[in-house]
Design a protein around this nucleic acid. Structure first.
Lengths: 156, 156
DNA sequence: TCAAACCACTTGCAAATGCAACCATTATAT
DNA sequence: ATATAATGGTTGCATTTGCAAGTGGTTTGA
């Protein structure tokens, strides 16, 4: 049985053998970009953009959430998240109000329209999901989630 | 021996069981953002930004490359890539010249300074690489690359 | 108790991004 | 040969992003 070659040195930017195709973060950025490019037209067709979709997903889990919490969950700059929420409020997807417990905090909640848009967005993104995980067994899928989480955790 | 539960339905935006933590592209975007946030200060310290680092890596493989090819490799909008290359040319990292074979094409090549910066950038990003793949066996690593490539290929 | 430090936002501003319209060159089809 | 289409790049412009410098509320430590 052939042992697989150890590819780790090829992904090391400090190594002379460095190959960009073995650098996980080149691949991850490329994949994120490609996915975003694929999903953006679907979302645009229903009148939202990618940051809006991300925030809707987060609020769909649990609600209301402080604006800073949303920024942390999505790993998006707080001031950028400010503007995203602002846009979403203007479009009627969310409402904001100061927290009763802590006057510094702004809580963001979904409106009925926001919930409807979320449902709609889920429906239009589902076919793309099917396409992406094509050929992934339950085990492949579980491994993918596990590896992504391990990489994430290694970044603190 | 316990069978692992099939998590695929939880990652399906169209499913009622949808959980954002099982949605691969939420995780991938989050990971890409976190990685970029971690590496940006390292690169800034040597006077470059993230797009510049990506282009330097690509040119480090092979050179010169048409500007449109670079954009495709990195999955970055052509007009955005135009401006990135422009900035890099202004900073003295690359030179551009029309292709001899095809008058439409602009080829981009590294300058000596660009090569020096690439070497420098590799050195400063290597420690972060070590941190990220901590705990990854050769097999884990190979699987990570394989899964990322499969997801990528499923997007065409 | 009351300043000092901290925290969660908020906003001004300059830079980066990307759509759309454009130009020049090359390929394709009569 | 020549019109037409396709390709590769460039640029104008409006939007988005994010650093830096606030603002005001909350906690901490004399």
């Amino acid at each position: 049985m052939a042992k697989t070659e150890d590819l780790r040195p090829f992904g090391n930017p400090g190594s002379d053998d460095f190959r960009v195709e073995a650098y996980p973060f080149y691949l991850i950025n490329r994949l994120a970009n490609r996915y975003n490019a694929a999903i953006e037209p679907e979302l645009r067709a229903i009148g939202i953009d990618i940051p809006t979709w991300r925030v809707l997903m987060i609020l769909g889990e649990h609600e209301p959430v402080a604006i800073g919490q949303i920024a942390k969950s999505a790993v998006i700059n707080l001031s950028t998240m400010m503007r995203i929420v602002e846009r979403m409020a203007d479009a009627g997807h969310v409402t904001t109000m100061p927290s009763a417990q802590d006057g510094r905090v702004t809580e963001v909640g979904l409106t009925d329209q926001g919930r409807a848009t979320l449902t709609h967005a889920r429906r239009v993104t589902a076919p793309l999901y099917d396409r992406i995980i094509k050929g992934f067994s339950a085990r492949d899928f579980a491994r993918t989630l596990e590896l992504l989480n391990r990489l994430h955790d290694n970044l603190d």
